[in-house]
Design a protein around this nucleic acid. Structure first.
Length: 460
RNA sequence: GUGAGUGUAGCUCAGUUGGUUAGAGCGCCAGACUGUGACUCUGGAUGUCGGGGGUUCAAAUCCCCUCACUCACCCCA
């Protein structure tokens, strides 16, 4: 098309009024629930330095970062090439990028403000950007709704972030048991132990975990094939699947944890992790996340900064996850000498909205004017403005029709925009300081004093 | 990144083996009805048929390229 495209860029969206109403509704619940858990809000810039962002997410993550090109002289200099004749690289052209998630900016903030509380609990609801290919429920600009607790290794913190997101989903109507949604939980160290037990090189850990994650989708044979394709010996692949099968058996965590208790040496790697998961499950049992938490030894997460328990929310009918999180005790330490442990959970706003949309979970959301004020040509604009002002002062949402075409057109417009009432202002009404209120859905109408209009409209 | 599909009016979509001036429904505009919308009736406006190139007497239709979007995979929230 030679005309300028009027669509937003790929993977990005405009939000018209009904979209905004639904998004605000969900964000409102999330913020309220997060605050009820004692989290305080944080907002950070859209743009971060690349030095902050790079190397935190793993190689795939770095690839998906949006980078901002240098401007003007600096760009020109970079394009000219280096004095020593070396090749110009990405890093010469840019040193800033759009934030990729909210966790890394949080880590930067915690490192930057020493005066924050020792146990800093913040929530953050802001857009993030990833240069991904869009798909159903996946966008290049999307909102994350994060809660994180910094400054403690206590599993109570892990349990609290799970409790917060579980409460959000329960309040939104996703259900109060595991049929509504599940929080899968696993442990990075446990995964690592299983991989190493199978005799797989730790360098291949990431690849192995990605394959493992698909066990439910492609089956044991499928995973094995994929592992071998990735260069892992067939024996090791088979061993890994055996280890995993054992991990799915009831009592696995308890057996593992017992090793930790009975042995001075680390007889079985992962024993401590198993003990932690048992403890976490026990703590969570007392809270809102209790019915939803399930141990899932196949759960792996792509982000490289996780160190302990990891989480992911799934629900029936959704391909990806509604949210995820985990413990990252080393991330903040990448920004400061202080090692500050932390754990967090992130809800994907669009994923939540997608499921709510498909299931028709939205309550009626008030939107647009309650009253369209119509007037006849003989009524001056200033008089109409005065009446509209009175109605607004009484608390109504009022739109004043700007022109004075036939009353029929004005009423038609009121119906088109979905206003429940039209208020008609003519010379009779003006003389009596009254308005004729017409209910658009039924056609009933009644003339009443301006002072009584607000109560009449509210009564429906 | 891989595979498949779809691009025709504001929206949802027809459009035959290539063949006059590209259609329908909804919506929009005007009127019947200038202090009353919805129902009805009458009339009206729409468009670079995604873009570019090619084949042909003739292309929305066939071929090539390109762009955009959708779905699945990959990965993720």
């Amino acid at each position: 098309m030679s005309q300028i495209s009027t669509k937003p860029p790929s993977g990005m969206r405009d939000f018209l009024a009904p979209d905004v109403a639904r998004r605000r509704h969900v964000i409102g619940v999330i913020a309220r629930v997060y605050e009820s858990f004692g989290f305080v809000p944080l907002e950070t810039p859209t743009i971060e330095n690349l030095s902050t962002l790079l190397g935190k997410y793993g190689p795939e993550g770095d690839q998906l970062l949006y980078r901002l090109l240098h401007r003007r002289e600096r760009l020109a200099r970079a394009l000219e090439g280096k004095p020593d004749g070396g090749k110009t690289t990405e890093l010469d052209l840019s040193d800033e990028g759009l934030r990729y998630d909210l966790t890394v900016p949080l880590a930067r903030v915690v490192a930057n403000y020493g005066e924050l509380p020792a146990f800093y609990k913040r929530y953050q609801i802001q857009p993030v950007w990833r240069a991904d290919r869009p798909a159903k429920g996946r966008f290049r600009e999307f909102f994350q709704c994060d809660v994180d607790i910094c400054g403690t290794k206590s599993l109570v913190a892990d349990a609290e972030v799970c409790g917060a997101v579980a409460t959000v989903l329960r309040e939104l109507g996703f259900g109060n048991d595991a049929n509504g949604f599940q929080i899968h939980v696993n442990h990075r160290e446990l995964l690592r132990a299983m991989v190493s037990e199978a005799g797989i090189d730790l360098a291949m850990e990431g690849q192995a975990l990605i394959a493992l994650d698909k066990l439910d989708k492609i089956g044991a044979d499928g995973v094995k094939t994929e592992l071998v394709e990735k260069g892992i010996a067939a024996e090791a692949a088979a061993k890994l699947l055996d280890v995993l099968a054992a991990a799915r058996a009831p009592g696995f965590l308890a057996a593992r944890a017992a090793d930790a208790a009975s042995s001075v040496d680390v007889a079985k790697p992962g024993a401590k992790a198993a003990a932690e998961l048992i403890e976490l499950l026990a703590i969570v049992a007392g809270g809102p996340a209790g019915p939803h938490l399930v141990f899932d030894p196949t759960l792996a997460r792509g982000l490289s900064y996780y160190t302990g328990p990891i989480f992911e929310i799934t629900c029936a009918g959704l391909a990806g996850s509604m949210g995820g999180g985990g413990r990252y005790d080393g991330l903040i330490g990448m920004f400061t000498k202080r090692q500050i442990p932390a754990v967090g959970f992130s809800l994907g706003l669009e994923r939540v909205l997608l499921v709510m949309e498909e299931r028709g979970m939205f309550p009626p959301l008030g939107l647009g004017p309650q009253v369209l004020l119509c007037r006849f040509p003989e009524i001056g604009a200033a008089q109409a403005v005065a009446v509209a002002t009175q109605l607004r002062a009484a608390g109504l949402r009022v739109e004043l029709f700007a022109d004075t075409p036939s009353l029929g057109k004005q009423l038609q417009y009121a119906a088109t925009i979905g206003a429940p009432f039209a208020a008609i202002l003519g010379s009779n009404e003006l003389a009596a300081q009254s308005l004729t209120l017409k209910k658009l859905t039924t056609g009933e109408q009644k003339t009443l004093p301006i002072a009584d209009v607000a109560a009449f409209v509210r009564a429906g």
